[in-house]
Design a protein around this nucleic acid. Structure first.
Lengths: 253, 253
DNA sequence: GCTGGAGCCTGCCGTAACGTCAGGGTCAAC
DNA sequence: GTTGACCCTGACGTTACGGCAGGCTCCAGC
């Protein structure tokens, strides 16, 4: 509930000095102090620290991180979605670099010379893309505000619709299973696809690959299993199977 | 052949100041100066700059980069191999982060609480792994020296053996094709697999996936195509097909 | 009751990798 | 022959900390 600076440093893999620095510049102020002036970090502080470390690892300056995290228009889900996109972008970039490396390896092996431009192409690729990208993404652009409206500002109406759809899907799975419909049946798969579309429309883009990973989660993590099983015992497994079957079908198309 | 500091900065996507800094600390000294004292960069300088930028992007301090690049025991291929491994490691790490993000997204969506440790697990994962990793990798360890000996110090004997095997494989492909053996025949596929094993043993680890990428290169990049086609017209395509067929076979096993 | 060592505090100076001027030379073009 | 783009060398500023010094705090053990 309440950690000393040393404990937080240990848990997060940073130095005590770093945490004091973040306090000094106002990036992460501990939510309390003891009578003797010792810093005390709460759970919310840890959560914020985790966000800080994430953006820091991607090379964001601390000042920008503060701006991002203190944006009152961005909720946790917005952050997660942005973080995932940032990561994907980085992975793509690294993959492109791997390709370039392999090109260079093979060129050297067979004695082909690469042009200077060819070699600098990828690596010179300005590494502060995320500077411009960031401004475009969480800056004052219309596109950003638009994407914001989609989820950050749900109306009560929206929430009613969303929870209804959520319930309809889960109930649909439960009924299908009760009726003896196998998880590999088209009706179950359709429900899975509807589930995927629902997530994409209302929360975050959910690819087939990602849907598959979610299915794994539902059966492997008891906390997620419980969410389904409180509708019907063993439903998580059924949903998992339907999602997998649907994923196979989608990929086969 | 010979570029001004501004041209190099432009091409590499760095500032002029950065290049002057690298000159000042001795990391990248231009190979010449004009009578008026203007810096002049040659092709070798560009190549070194490219290496510098690579390691810099992966977060290495400039001093370490100098040590790496000035290591007399490491040739270009050694660098490329190391770079590829470093990239793969980073990609793995980013992928793990994506997984963690997706876990958090889904947890939030269905209302599951993650524990603080769970959240810090990945992100707290010390980002200076490559510090220890680097020392272990290019430091004074036995394992490193061992891996060095494999390729950095080819004897004349080795080279004779290697070029002979290279020629044997290419000739094998040419003969098979001349004899009307289809690229999808087991004999052609065996040659492809021998080619892959040859690269792995003598140069760098070549996975099936990578072998496939090399095959693409052979037909898509005219400079590589030429390497094969100077043995026999159209051989590159044949080799490409054989590699693909073999890759399918390997993956099917 | 006190004492020793681990942990915490606030300055304050150092460092790495540049950014950003200031003040001044160079060069091709008009 | 001068204008504007490009180059030079200092030199000081900045970010994100590392690493002290000098001093308080807290708990375990005698």
């Amino acid at each position: 509930m309440d950690y000393s600076i040393g404990q937080v440093a240990e848990a997060a893999g940073v130095t005590v000095r770093t945490l004091r620095h973040y306090d000094a510049i106002g990036l992460l102020r501990p939510s309390g102090r003891t009578a003797a002036g010792y810093r005390r970090y709460g759970d919310a502080d840890l959560e914020r620290l985790q966000q800080i470390l994430f953006y820091r690892e991607l090379g964001f300056p601390l000042e920008d991180i503060a701006t991002i995290l203190d944006d009152p228009d961005a909720d946790a889900l917005t952050h997660l979605r942005r973080q995932r996109e940032l990561l994907m972008g980085r992975i793509d970039r690294l993959r492109a670099m791997v390709d370039a490396i392999e090109l260079a390896m093979e060129a050297r092996r067979v004695g082909v010379d690469l042009t200077p431009e060819e070699r600098l192409e990828i690596f010179g690729g300005d590494p502060d893309v995320h500077r411009a990208e960031a401004e475009e993404r969480w800056g004052d652009t219309d596109a950003y505000r638009e994407s914001q409206r989609r989820t950050a500002a749900y109306t009560k109406e929206d929430w009613k619709r969303i929870t209804a759809e959520q319930k309809a899907i889960v109930d649909g799975f439960a009924e299908a299973r009760a009726a003896g419909v196998p998880a590999t049946d088209a009706r179950a798969m359709d429900l899975a696809e509807r589930h995927r579309g629902f997530i994409t429309d209302s929360f975050y883009e959910c690819s087939v690959r990602m849907h598959r990973r979610l299915a794994e989660l539902y059966v492997n993590d008891s906390r997620f299993t419980a969410v389904f099983d409180r509708t019907a015992e063993g439903l998580a497994q059924y949903v998992h199977d339907a999602i997998c079957a649907n994923a196979d079908r989608q990929e086969a198309r």
